[in-house]
Design a protein around this nucleic acid. Sequence first.
DNA 1: GTCTATAAGAGGATAGAC
DNA 2: GTCTATCCTCTTATAGAC
Lengths: 208, 208
Amino acid sequence: MTTRTKPTFRETMLQAREDAILDAVNRLLATKGFELMTVDEVVADVGIAKASLYKHFDSKEELAAAAMQRVLATAQSVAADLQADASLGPLDKLKGVTRWAMQTQLAGQMPSLPSHNQTLRAALGAHKGYTDSLFGLSEQLEQWIEGALADGSLRSSLPPTLMLYTVFARACDPVLGFLRGSLPDAELVESVLDATFHGLAHPLKAGS
Amino acid sequence: MTTRTKPTFRETMLQAREDAILDAVNRLLATKGFELMTVDEVVADVGIAKASLYKHFDSKEELAAAAMQRVLATAQSVAADLQADASLGPLDKLKGVTRWAMQTQLAGQMPSLPSHNQTLRAALGAHKGYTDSLFGLSEQLEQWIEGALADGSLRSSLPPTLMLYTVFARACDPVLGFLRGSLPDAELVESVLDATFHGLAHPLKAGS
DNA sequence: GTCTATAAGAGGATAGAC
DNA sequence: GTCTATCCTCTTATAGAC
């Protein structure tokens, strides 16, 4: 952020405050979504005044974009760890990041991305950090999909972009919310993962 | 509604107006979702005064519930047609209703159900027509799932409730919106249907 | 039942003192 | 940068005439 290697105490405090704000935003975005989340709730949660928050972020949309960027950065980090694991094939890596996304949603820490809000979409598109992280993550996933198609572990009859978006969609899959509680979280995640990659139907009797 | 077999002209007009209102609500709910839909938009679309709308429906939540009930009633009708077709097995029937749900979403006529809105959820739960239709449709789907499990066309290793909710989830799958335009709607629907029931991975090389 | 006009309140954003 | 107090717009819902 600056040329200084060691941040001042003041910088550290500001960073910590911004992190606290984004923690609250992330949680509220995950539980209520963008429209239902209010700035008043955010500041009440963090324990600061609303005007103070607006010194850090220009608008509610900027707030959401910053929180989403942080999640995407974490996802990129998870992806990098998976990529570094030589024991995993491309399909395993795809499953790994999908598993992480679902676990994060169940933990109440995955902001729900699919918003019909045009204002929010515009703000996200204009947010450099967000689009960069999204693009970088997509590139990694696309590379794995290509690899899995090449080694025959993904079906070549399906469009690769459909596979990419299907992985993203698991991050906000409502099925997880509906089924949580009826079976342990770990089993739930593995079941949805199984259904996503191997389907609901029996492979031997797959008809039409 | 009354003991009269032939509705009066006045009753016909009122019914027609309510249908026009629900048409607008349905479309707005599909494109913007509950929070972003405003009652002002609805009345502007129908061409009536806001106070007139509130003579028909007590609240915005009631409005949404009535629209959702209508969609569920249509779904039940579609399911009944599929059930009457003796040439179809239970898995084909499940696929049929899933296909209809996705086509309806692409047509901009599927209200997005997954709302974090607690007030809306309460209103839906209290709406007899809505819960009855939802329950009836679920029963039919569960019956098909049981049948498909019995004849071996659905995988017995997955929880039946997961299958039920997965079918419902396709009605509001964001993947359809992301991919629309990049390939014809008909192909898109078949691809997502294929991915849902047969998975992204190649059955022969299905690893972990 | 339909209209015009308005109440009532929530929520995003800012002014100005410190 | 942080606070308190306030502005202002949007939105749900209703009052009251016809």
